[in-house]
Each structure stands twice: as C-alpha cells, then as structure tokens.
Nucleic acid binder design. Structure first.
Ligand SMILES: [Mn+2]
Ligand SMILES: [Mn+2]
Ligand SMILES: [Mn+2]
Ligand SMILES: [Mn+2]
Lengths: 221, 221
DNA sequence: ATACTGACTTTGATTAGTCAAAGTCAAGGT
DNA sequence: ACCTTGACTTTGACTAATCAAAGTCAGTAT
C-alpha cells in the first residue's frame, strides 16, 4: 500500500493538474511549493513515482498522473472529502477547520469505515466546500461552474463551491452568508476598482475583491 | 509530537506493565514480541525513549514508563478506546473488527475531534470490550475484576470486560452471548478437565476452557 | 568452578523521506 | 554567438525505523 507521503503527492498532482486544463504537465516547482518541500526532494520523489508507473515524468518540464496514479489520487480525495463532510455533519466541526483534520484522517480511514461513513451521510455528492466526492470506483462528475469574477451580471446564481481552504477566508465567507446553496446576483463589476458587487436576498449589497470573487464558484439558479 | 511508532511503543509498554503488578519492569523480549520487531530494534527504540525521559531503562532487565511516558500512553489509549466505541455505536461496525481500525485512527484523531466524539457518546467510561477509557487528564479508574477462571461458584456475576482483541474469539463470544453486561453464574469448575461450566439466563449451560475463561472478566452482579 | 544456554545488546546495513549546496540546462537579452 | 538568470537536477548527508548476524552477559546445570 502507498505511504501517506505518496498519497499526498498523488493527490497534490491531481489538484494542480485540474486548473491546468487536465492533461498538461504540472511543473516541478509548482509541485514542490505545494508540497512544501525543496525542489530536489520533489524530483527524487517523482522519479520514484515514475518508476512505480504512477506518473509520467519529463525532466525539466513536469509531471502528469498515469491512469493508475489518478485512480489512487481520486481514492484519497474521496476519503478526504467524505471525512470532511462527516466531521461537519455528524461531529459539528466548523467547515473552516475540517480540511486540516481530514488531511491526516484521509490516510487512516479504511475502506470499510469509509463506506459506512458514505452510507451514514446518504451517499453525498459534494463536500462542505462544494468539492465533488469521487465515487468508490474513482469517478468524478465534472462540474461546469463559473466564478463570481467571470459570470454574467444580474442573473440569478447559486453558490456551488469554494475553491480555497484557508480557515480565515472560510470564516469570513460564513460570516457574510456566502456558503454553498445560497442564492445571489452580481449587481456590478468594476475591473479598475478590482471589485465585484453582490446582492444576497434580505441583505445589503456586499463588495468583494476580484481575487476573492474568483474563489467563489457559482451555477445558474 | 511523538511519531505513531513512539505512541505504539509507549502504549504497549503500558499494556504489558499492567498485569505485571504495575511497577515491575517489562522485559525487552516481551516488548519486542508484542511489537513484532526483533529484539535489537526494541533495544534501539527504548534507548531513544529513555533519552527522551519517557521510560526508565535497565539493560538486560527491562523498561518502565516514566510519569511523562505514562501520560502519553494513556492519551493514546483514550484515543484508541473512544474511537473503538464510536465505530461500534455510531458507524455500526462489529466489536471484533474495531480494534484493528482504531490501531490506525488512534494516531490521526486530533484532540478537538476526540473531544467531540467523547461528547457525542456521552462521556463513556468503558469501550466496547469493557476496557476503561482514560480521562482527557490521563486518569484511569482502576477496575477490580476477577476472571471466570478464578471467581466463586454459584454467585450472580456480570461480564465486565474481555481481555483479548482476537477477532475470532470476540466473534465466538458474541455468538455465545458472552458480552459485557450479561449476567451469569459459574456452575462448576474442573481443574483436571481444564474447564469451566457457565449458566446464562434462558440458555443451556456452556463450557469453556480455562484459557478462554481467564480472558473474561466479571464483577458481582 | 566451568560451561552452556537463552535473552539481550551491538554492529553494520537498508529503506523512505528529507534538505543544502553545487551543478546543469534552456531561454531570453545583448 | 555569448552571457545571465531562474528553474530544475544531482550529490552528499541526515534522521527515523527497521533487520540480520555477531557478540555479550547472567543465571542454571553439571
Ligand atoms: Mn494528507
Ligand atoms: Mn473540502
Ligand atoms: Mn497504533
Ligand atoms: Mn478495546
């Protein structure tokens, strides 16, 4: 069985690979930064993963998961996200703190326990942050979401997902009512002021910077 | 923070130390066997733990926990036993399988999650096998139990604890109705036949070997 | 007393994961 | 064409945990 270090690398490669259009190579520097190790450490690890056929490695260019590596990554992600939801729904932890807890538990939960958790939660499809939960077969239904930084004005929208795990940011969103499921519209957007003006039902308008708005993903309501 | 390997050693020393009257030294060989490592590996580890003031070590004699080592061991044991009970009570796992699950989870559960689990379960005092759960301050209320191999005949007894984690043995006990809380009496005991004859309410008498009887701890009902 | 035996310790080696520092490469600027 | 630079790789070293095999010790048996 893969060590938790290997699981963390594979999961991270998967997460880095997503925004890059899917089949692009993840640059080593990006991976090293994300894993909080020196570039040399990442190179060594990736050569081992390539040896085990979990990644394809092109020196000085980057790394990509193989099918086998992707399956492993998706299983780790499934554990991570189901654990997060369980901690929120059953043990009542705050959505801002469950990511760090799940980071450890994702390596300790057995398949048997995980399937019990899944059943207990009624086979949910998304975690507390709106991230999709892969199936036990390692499938993810791709979401087609836009961020508040890019979608149309004056359309009825619903928050679907938060693309950031920062506890402080998540706490801010919670205080502001910006959590998955909530309906809103964009009243205006000003590129020069770098800001977006939101309107939630029964609330006064709220202004966000573009960087923050980009982390809030929505779907048409 | 201590590695999971260190946590496992400390917990095991504590467990070995208990039957030995409390303050006796645990022989290295016993510890090595229990940890499933070679004697040399145990020696090396114990020297490191002694350096960290978690154990007192007398070469060729044995090892004993210091106060600090005992506190750490009790915290690991608390995590282990609360996790076991949670898996049984909330996720519905069988009491024969939770020990192995908890063996991993005991190293991954944070204090915060653990206290939520404790509260969710209503601050229980024993785990599914009747083993006492140390408090968050690291206190255990000592049980004064006798085993079925040694207690009086024809007295009303109640099963309080099973001193074995073997899945197959636990499954047998469950099939036989020999679980904590159950009332019974000992009808007879024959040292030559190495057997004990039990009577449970509404059941036909049941015969156990002395080795099995010794693992079932009871209190007066 | 001497020798044997089994338990324990030491030594030397291995594996996983890591870093610091030195080396290399590809691009872009001159 | 030649340098500079920043990103990446290599090298050498370290720590934690482990084993195999050789060495040592203490208690028992002769
Ligand atoms: Mn992790
Ligand atoms: Mn999440
Ligand atoms: Mn353990
Ligand atoms: Mn138990």
């Amino acid at each position: 069985m893969p060590s938790s270090t290997v699981e963390n690398y594979l999961k991270q490669i998967y997460l880095e690979q997503q925004p890059l259009g899917g089949s692009d190579l993840v640059p080593m520097g990006r991976l090293a930064t994300a894993m909080a190790v020196t570039p040399g450490t990442a190179t060594t690890m990736i050569k081992a993963l390539a040896e085990a056929n979990l990644v394809t490695y092109e020196p000085r260019t980057g790394v990509r998961l193989t099918k086998a590596g992707e399956q492993l990554a998706l299983h780790v992600l499934r554990r991570h996200r189901l654990v997060e939801l369980f901690l929120v729904k059953v043990l009542g932890l705050d959505w801002s703190e469950v990511h760090d807890e799940a980071e450890h538990l994702e390596h300790a939960v057995s398949d048997k326990v995980l399937e019990r958790i899944d059943a207990y939660l009624g086979h949910p499809s998304v975690d507390p942050h709106g991230d999709p939960i892969p199936t036990s077969k390692g499938k993810v239904t791709p979401q087609k979401l836009q961020s508040l930084a890019e979608c149309d004005l004056n359309q009825p929208l619903r928050i679907a997902r938060i693309a950031d795990q920062e506890p402080a940011f998540l706490q801010f969103l919670h205080r502001s009512g910006l959590i998955p499921g909530v309906a809103l519209t964009i009243q205006s957007r000003d590129p020069h002021a770098d800001s977006v003006l939101l309107k939630l039902a029964n609330k006064s308008p709220l202004s966000l910077g573009t960087a923050a708005a980009a982390k809030i993903l929505v779907e048409p309501a």
